[in-house]
């Protein structure tokens, strides 16, 4: 147990925060759902039914997709784009996927390198991009889940108001889908951009997300 905590405290703390926030969201969302039902003279629902509703699923997936888009883009764009002075960026002149020597792949792999780093061809390509592929797949998967739960929710709403159904493609073109998508994206882009820029001049002693307190403002790609 001690080793579990010592080796994984960051992942465990975030997991605990995630579960607590999700439970809080579910309870608050359930109350809000039933308040709305009351106003519209509809029956309230049990908590368990709310957990498996499109309404709750849509609210959860909407936020998941934007977070994973943020990390997908950050991983991808930092390969080529530079912010001088940022610990999040590579140094100017180093943009690109770098040499096999720098990346320790193929014949430059070391004894302790992952097995697929020593290979060539498709498997090396997959492993070389595996973080991006995983985050990108999670982004697209959760965005798809947002779209189908949103469509289901939207259809139920239209049905209740005696309006005609919309098909899935029709929902993808709806103002509601794009408002809920873009309101999340804009905040992620601002937060990531500001993190890259603020960390040029500001510091957090002890954090690997920051440069060392005494590092010069001009130092790029230096983590504390």
């Amino acid at each position: 147990m001690r080793a579990l905590w010592r080796d994984n405290s960051l992942a465990l703390v975030f997991l605990t925060f995630f579960v607590a926030a999700l439970v809080g969201q579910a309870i608050a969302g359930w109350h809000e759902y039933n308040n709305e039902a009351l106003v519209h003279h509809k029956a309230s629902i049990e908590f368990g039914r709310y957990l498996v509703s499109s309404s709750f699923g849509n609210a959860v997936m909407e936020n998941w997709q934007s977070e994973y888009l943020q990390f997908t883009l950050y991983i991808l764009l930092t390969v080529w784009f530079i912010q001088r002075g940022s610990p999040e960026s590579k140094e100017p002149g180093k943009s690109g996927t770098e040499s096999d020597l720098d990346q320790r792949v193929g014949e430059h792999a070391r004894a302790d390198s992952p097995r697929w780093a020593r290979l060539r061809g498709v498997r090396l390509w997959i492993y070389s991009n595996s973080l991006l592929l995983a985050m990108g797949a999670i982004w697209l998967g959760s965005w798809f889940a947002q779209s189908v739960t949103g469509w289901s929710d939207y259809s139920a709403d239209r049905l209740a108001h005696g309006e005609p159904r919309v098909d899935y493609v029709g929902y993808l073109g709806s103002a509601q889908f794009w408002e809920s998508t873009l309101q999340n994206w804009q905040s992620e882009f601002l937060a990531v951009g500001s993190m890259a820029v603020l960390a040029v001049y500001l510091r957090q002693r002890g954090s690997p997300e920051s440069k060392p307190v005494g590092a010069p403002h001009s130092a790029t790609g230096v983590e504390g």
Partner: peptide, 30 residues
Amino acid sequence: MGSVRAIFVLYLLIIVGGITFYCAVGLTHH
């Protein structure tokens, strides 16, 4: 590294499970 791998798998299961579950909810509820 055994516990690190277990945490890695746990995170993946939560993510893949959550997405799969709510895809199914969205696709079956209308």
